[in-house]
Simulated scan of single mutants.
Amino acid sequence: MSAIATSAALWVIAWQAILTRKGIDIQAAVALDSARARLDSQAPDVVVQLEDPCWPPLAWSHMGMPVSPWPHGYIWHFPEKEHERIVLQAEVIVRHFHSGHLEVTFGGEDKVDDHDGRTRPARSVLLADEDGEHRVLLYRDFTIKELAENYRAQQDGRPLPHRVQGTITVHDGRDNGVTDTWSLDLTGSPVQPHESRDGAWIVVPDHLTDGSGLRALAYERRPARRRTYWISRQDGLELPAPRYTS
């Protein structure tokens, strides 16, 4: 009987410890939620939008930015012309509604500035207007062979291997603040096999209902935002996400 009583007492003590720990976990989670809500309320209001890509896709040029599409009905015969190149590009708009300074960083080699028509990696910019925007191009050129590989992957239900990718990162410089990051992705299969010629490829024709071939491309006009909360940006200390235990 004594052994049973002792065992029951131990279970009671263990259960009380669990409840106490659970209460502490909940309090910590609530505190973290409160801290994140405060940082959310102080975060700059920024919108990143990807415009519809250029269609028809443009021909690559040694002179810098492409200026025109391939001629209508142009045919690429493999393997003779499989290394000719097409450009996939779309304009990215960063709009902000903020009364202070913002630092905007453009990450990835597939993003270029378009101020003077020359191809170059986009640089970090500082936005200081009450309301304003900045525009860059998400841009990359591919061989027709690479885009043919995208077409075959799409037909097989596999991920498309060739893509234009980059990131937009925005923060207002506060040490105890937030950093917002948007991942950009543009891909698709803008070329398809010729209906009657083996080993020949053409640009996807315009769709009857859409009026263009943009349906052949895959992209998100409003990419999802990923927010990082900082205890101290300078020291690299992130605010952890709250965890509720059951």
Rank of each mutant, 00 (worst) to 15 (best):
T179N: 12
A153W: 14
E109W: 10
A128I: 04
V112L: 04
I168Y: 15
I144C: 07
I202K: 05
G157A: 12
L126A: 10
H115R: 13
V170I: 13
V170S: 07
R120A: 14
T181R: 14
R174T: 07
Q154E: 13
G211P: 01
G108N: 13
H162V: 06
S183G: 06
R135H: 12
T143W: 08
Q154V: 12
F142V: 03
D131L: 02
L138N: 02
G108I: 01
S124Q: 05
H162L: 08
S196H: 15
I144R: 08
D206Q: 11
E146S: 04
Q154D: 10
H207E: 12
R118T: 07
R163K: 15
H194K: 10
S124V: 00
R120V: 02
G188F: 05
D110N: 12
V125T: 07
L127D: 12
E146A: 03
Q155H: 06
L137K: 09
S124P: 00
D156G: 01
R123L: 13
H207N: 10
Q155R: 15
L138A: 01
T119G: 02
E109I: 06
T143H: 04
E149Y: 09
R152W: 04
D175L: 00
E146T: 11
R152S: 10
N150T: 14
D131T: 03
L184N: 08
T187R: 05
I202R: 14
P193V: 06
S124T: 06
P161N: 10
S183L: 11
H134R: 02
S183F: 10
D116T: 02
L127A: 03
K145V: 02
G157Y: 14
V125M: 05
Y151T: 09
Q155W: 08
R197I: 12
L127G: 07
K111M: 14
V112M: 04
D116K: 03
G211T: 06
P161C: 08
T143P: 00
P193E: 01
E133W: 01
H134G: 00
H115L: 08
D129E: 14
G188D: 05
T187D: 13
H115E: 09
E130G: 03
V191S: 08
G199L: 03
G108M: 09
T167F: 15
G157P: 00
W201C: 08
Y139S: 07
R140A: 06
N176Q: 11
Q155P: 01
R118K: 11
Q165R: 15
I202F: 03
V204Q: 13
